Simulated assay, not measured.
Amino acid sequence: MSAQSAVLITGASTGIGAVYADRFAKRGHDLVLVARDRERMEALAARLRERDGVNVEILRADLTQRADLLQVEARLADDARIGVLVNNAGASAAGGFLDQSVDDVSRVIDLNTTALARLASAVAPRFAREGRGAIVNIASVVGLAPEFGMSVYGATKAFALFLSQGLHLELGPKGVYVQAVLPAATRTEIWASVGKDVNEIEGVMEVDDLVDAALVGFDRRETVTIPPLPDVQQWNDFDNARRAMMPNFAQSQPASRYR
Rank of each mutant, 00 (worst) to 15 (best):
A67E: 14
D68H: 11
L69C: 06
L69P: 00
L70M: 09
L70T: 15
Q71G: 11
Q71P: 05
V72K: 01
E73L: 03
A74K: 12
A74F: 02
A74M: 09
R75A: 15
L76A: 01
L76C: 04
L76P: 02
L76G: 01
L76M: 10
D78K: 12
D78Y: 08
D79N: 10
D79A: 05
D79Y: 01
A80L: 11
R81W: 02
R81Y: 09
R81A: 13
R81E: 10
R81G: 08
I82L: 06
G83W: 03
G83L: 00
V84P: 02
L85C: 05
L85I: 03
L85N: 00
N88M: 02
A89R: 00
A89H: 04
A89Q: 01
A89T: 04
G90R: 00
G90T: 00
G90Q: 05
G90N: 07
G90H: 01
S92R: 06
A93M: 01
A94M: 13
G95F: 07
G95Y: 10
G96A: 15
G96D: 13
L98E: 11
D99M: 14
S101C: 11
S101M: 10
V102E: 14
V102I: 13
V102G: 11
D103Y: 10
D104G: 10
V105E: 13
S106W: 09
S106C: 12
S106I: 09
S106D: 12
S106Q: 14
R107I: 04
R107K: 15
R107H: 15
R107T: 09
I109V: 15
D110C: 11
D110Q: 15
L111F: 06
L111H: 04
N112A: 12
T113W: 05
T113Q: 13
T113Y: 07
T114A: 06
T114G: 06
T114C: 08
T114E: 08
A115E: 01
A115D: 04
A115G: 08
A115W: 04
A115H: 01
L116N: 03
R118G: 06
L119H: 04
L119E: 06
L119W: 03
L119P: 02
L119Q: 00
L119G: 00
A120K: 00
A120R: 07
S121D: 14
S121Y: 11
S121F: 08
S121G: 11
S121Q: 13
S121I: 08
A122H: 07
